[in-house]
Simulated scan of single mutants.
Amino acid sequence: MKALIILAILTILLTIEPTSADLGTIQSTCKRTPYYNLCVSTLQADPKSANADVTGLALIMVSVVKAKTTELVGIIRSLKGSRPDLRKALDQCDQAYSTGILVADVPVAEEALTKGNPKFAETGMNDAANEALGCEGDFKPAKSPFTDKNTALHDVSAIAAAITRLLL
C-alpha cells in the first residue's frame, strides 16, 4: 500500500514539474535564440513545454505571438476613438497586426510546423517581428503608446523564428 502511494505521488510530480531532461531541452533550445531569459521563462510558463520537442516549443512560441498580437489589436482599437491624433499610425498598426500577423503569419507558421515545413514558419515569425518594428516606427518621431508591448511582440516573434530555424 505504501509503495502505491509513493508511486502515485511520483506520477503526479512528474506530470507537474518538468524533469531535468525537459528543462535541458528548453535551455538548450533557448540558448540558440536572441533572448535566452525571455525564451526560458515564456516556455516554462506553459505546462505543455514540459514534454515538448523543438517543434512543440516552436508551436508554443507561435501561440504566444498570437496572444500578444491579439492583445495589441484590442489596445489599438480602443485607442482609435480616444486618440484621433494617432489615427493614421493606429490604422497602420491595426492592419499589420490583424491582417498581417493574425490572418497570415500565425496560421502559416502553425500549419508549416504541423506539416514539417519549418521554413515557412521561420519566414512568418520574422515577418511578425518586422511588423512590430514597423508599427513602432509608424509613430516616429514619438514613441507609440504601447512601445513595451511592441517590443515584447518583436522579441517573442524573434524567438519563435530562431526556434523554427533549428528545425531546418
Rank of each mutant, 00 (worst) to 15 (best):
I163T: 05
I163Y: 05
A89L: 01
E71D: 11
S144W: 06
S41H: 05
I16P: 05
K31N: 13
S20E: 10
G116C: 09
A3W: 02
I6P: 00
F146K: 01
V156E: 08
D46G: 03
A109Q: 09
S82R: 03
D105L: 00
T25C: 00
N51G: 09
A58E: 01
S41K: 10
C135V: 02
A132R: 09
S63K: 14
L14C: 06
T123P: 00
N150T: 06
D148L: 13
L72D: 03
Q95I: 03
T123N: 10
A21P: 00
D22M: 03
L43G: 08
R165M: 06
T69V: 02
K31G: 03
T19S: 15
I159H: 09
R32K: 14
L79S: 07
D85Q: 11
S98D: 09
E71H: 07
Q44T: 11
K143V: 09
K31L: 13
S157C: 05
M1H: 11
K88W: 02
N37W: 10
V156G: 02
P145K: 07
D155V: 00
S78E: 13
L7S: 12
C135E: 00
D138Q: 14
T114M: 09
R165I: 01
T11H: 07
E111M: 10
P107N: 07
C135K: 00
Q95K: 07
T25R: 14
D155H: 06
L13Y: 11
S144D: 08
A104N: 15
L167S: 09
D148K: 14
Y35F: 15
V156K: 04
A67C: 06
A162M: 02
L14W: 06
A158H: 01
G100Y: 05
A104K: 15
G74E: 08
R77G: 09
S144P: 08
M125V: 06
L90Q: 02
P141R: 05
T99C: 03
K48G: 04
A161M: 09
T164A: 15
A45Q: 11
K149T: 08
K48N: 11
N130A: 15
A109R: 08
R87F: 12
N117T: 14
T25V: 12
K80L: 04
S78T: 13
P118T: 10
V40N: 12
L113I: 07
L113M: 06
L167A: 04
K143N: 14
A104V: 14
T15F: 12
A152E: 12
P34C: 04
R87A: 15
L59A: 10
A52L: 03
Q92V: 02
L153Q: 04
T70L: 11
S144Y: 05
L113K: 04
K88R: 06
D46R: 14
L168M: 13
L38I: 03
V73L: 07
E136Y: 01
A52M: 11
T42N: 05
F146G: 00
E111A: 12
G137T: 11
S41F: 10
A152K: 11
F139K: 01
R77T: 09
D105V: 00
V62K: 09
A158F: 06
I12N: 01
A160H: 06
N150A: 07
L153F: 02
D46S: 10
R77C: 05
L167F: 03
K115W: 07
K143F: 13
P34A: 03
T151S: 11
F146H: 07
R165W: 04
C135R: 00
D46L: 05
A3T: 08
L79M: 12
